[in-house]
Design a protein around this nucleic acid. Structure first.
Lengths: 213, 213
DNA sequence: CCATGTGAAGGTATTCACAGCC
DNA sequence: GGCTGTGAATACCTTCACATGG
């Protein structure tokens, strides 16, 4: 294995492999071939091998990949080897759903703080997390929380991001439908749900009003 | 303008342009240059011009783009020119948040039906939509609903998709963290929220536990 | 003079095919 | 024989630079 920059698209696929590998490990398997994993996650086998080749030799020809070893390798690459804590800002409908969502755990991610500006919400607990005043976002620095999820309205998003950056947050997952400006060293991933739904009709056949008799 | 296949990446950006154009129109503008739109949505001007060139001549050199005309053009391209109805399956935390979310409207998308298997939920209304028994998914065909959002658990996702496909649904936005199999003519977009958060640490500087004194 | 639309260049990611290893 | 790792070929997307048109 030579030195390689890992392509962004590969980074996007690595969590998919993790998911598949962990399910496979649960089923008692110790090794898995790129082909079996491919069938399982829906990505071609050569793509998987190429992706994994960017950052390590994990496989054994004739045998496949040692699942546990590979999981550790991918986690280290994604910097998910230690448990990471995250803060949520905006405990509306979506924010509450995120607090209740158990799916972050499998990646070693844990939402440990929640903020809102609504006085009616502050002090109440949602899914075991007590909601704090958004004015206290600056305490994130002392608490070593470097990940944040933004689930506030569009207009509140930019000021929220400014405060998070000032509090030392290094990565932001944003659900507000707008562009956000932040220093280049801060990684912002925006996930606009309505936009994903909006590009679906493009791929659908035109004449869907015609019944398929 | 010659014939061009529209790249997938362009289709992904078109809703971004729509968003920016509609806000700009709200501010009273009639025309906009690729540069102004670029500043607004955070995508380079040449990229915008290239993207738009794939499906029509909308601009006037020296003037810019007529916003209303361009909005119509993009909507037609994305097949968003008529209001589209969608069904939601799985009215848990996330599902309820989606029903309450007003952001779909701006793209002409409207969630008009919701399904669940929980007898305690069936018959109740959430955000004005009465929850129906998931066994009734097959009525979607008569109701001309061709879009669906899947917000059920991982294990329920595949059977749900099978039912939706049987009911004539043509496009699916899936939130369950798993691969889904469906006929090729059906477009499935999977949006795994935990996975997005999971790739964030990769882009963050290594030594984030070291305080920036 | 200003801003679009687009060939051409450059870069990145996907796909293939197979040498090499267990 | 089976399966990995990877150079090479291909496809796709981005970026540039500028001719063209209002």
């Amino acid at each position: 294995m030579r030195y390689h920059k890992i392509p962004d698209e590969t980074v996007r696929r690595l969590p998919v492999y993790l998911r598949g590998l962990m399910v496979s490990a649960d089923q008692g398997h110790e090794h898995i071939s790129s082909q079996s994993l491919a069938d399982f996650v829906g990505i071609d086998a050569w793509q998987i091998r190429k992706d994994l080749s960017y950052f390590g030799d994990f496989g054994t020809p004739g045998v496949g990949y040692h699942i546990e070893k590979l999981v550790r390798g991918i986690k280290r690459t994604l910097r998910l080897d230690a448990v990471r804590t995250a803060a949520l800002v905006g405990v509306g409908d979506l924010g509450s759903a995120l607090l209740a969502y158990p799916g972050f755990r499998m990646y070693g991610l844990d939402i440990v703080a929640a903020f809102d500006i609504d006085p009616k919400k502050i002090g109440k607990a949602v899914s075991g997390i007590v909601i704090e005043d958004a004015a206290r976002i600056d305490t994130l620095r002392q608490r070593d929380i470097s990940l944040a999820i933004v689930a506030v309205s569009r207009t509140a998003a930019q000021p929220t991001v400014d405060r998070l950056v000032a509090a030392g947050v290094k990565g932001i997952l944003n659900f507000a439908p707008c562009k956000l400006v932040a220093p280049k060293r801060i990684k912002v991933i925006t996930l606009d749900i309505a936009m994903e739904l909006a590009r679906l009709p493009y791929y659908m056949p035109r004449a869907e009003q015609v019944a398929e008799t």
